[in-house]
Amino acid sequence: MREFIHQSNISKLIINIITILLLIVSIGLSVSYGSTNIALGTVWEAVFHFNPELTTHQVIQELRLPRAFSAALVGAFLAVSGAIMQGMTRNPLASPSIMGVTDGAAFALVLMLAFFPTISTMGLISSSFIGAGLAVGLVFMVGSFSPSGLTPVKLALAGVAIGTMLRSISSILSLHFNLEKQMGFWIAGGLDGTSWSSVTILLISGAIGLFIAISISKSITVLSLGEDMATGLGQNNLMIKLFGILSILILTGAAVSVAGAVGFVGLIVPHITRFIIGTDYRWIIPSSILFGALLLVLADVVSRLVNAPFETPVGAITSLIGVPFFLYLARGSGGGK
């Protein structure tokens, strides 16, 4: 038995190492594909022997690299948020986009830009956290008022309603304050316009959010078995939930402020991860980081190829991947009740 667990841990490790290698390759692809294709050798040169006089080197350093890194980080954050949500609520449909979190963050961003146009980047990011928190709070409130609790269906419907409401207000504000372009960008989701400063923002928020996520991962495994069981094992569920929500808000808020509403990543990745890696959140969370990063980097490459030389919002690509998955879940456990 001990040997078996040991073995399967090794195979999990191998899967993760393979994913890391795939991630490196896809980041390479992401950097070399674009409106002008750049050979991988040149990419190598630009990274390790940077020559500021060459345009290609500048394109790589200033545009392509930060974009690829942002894609990887945003994908990772959304995936981990989804994993924590699904673990905490034991609801297969829980994820940032379904729960209106991304709409909440976008709402706060439009609100800030409308009334405080001179706001600093840091201010924008913090308001994005608060907006995400507002949406989560509202959705959970609907659940707690409801006699039958937050069933998977109710969660999805409450998310749709709260999301629509927040998006309506954002649309009105953006029409009035001429912020349609920014608003459209956040709604559709996209990675063009990312720079090294986006990467910095993501890295700082990620360090905090992922640290919390990993440190509560063992307790989430227990929580995912059922609250009574967790209480029986002497776990302080309220504390764990609070920390879980905190890390969801930090991770989703940062992701939305950089890339807008990129849907379905947080829904799909945790399911795939659980299917491959099993039910232990100490493994699920690190693997979700890798799978989420890989998914979004690849989706971003596809978004540039689908309608070249124009870009398609990456959110549309992830939706197309995610919808069949959502439908499968809706036909299965989610729609059973």
Partner: peptide
């Protein structure tokens, strides 16, 4: 539920 999913799929095609 299926309606919500199909809606999201159509919306993605619309954007494209």
């Amino acid at each position: 539920l299926v309606g919500i999913g199909v809606n999201a799929g159509f919306a993605a095609f619309l954007t494209i």
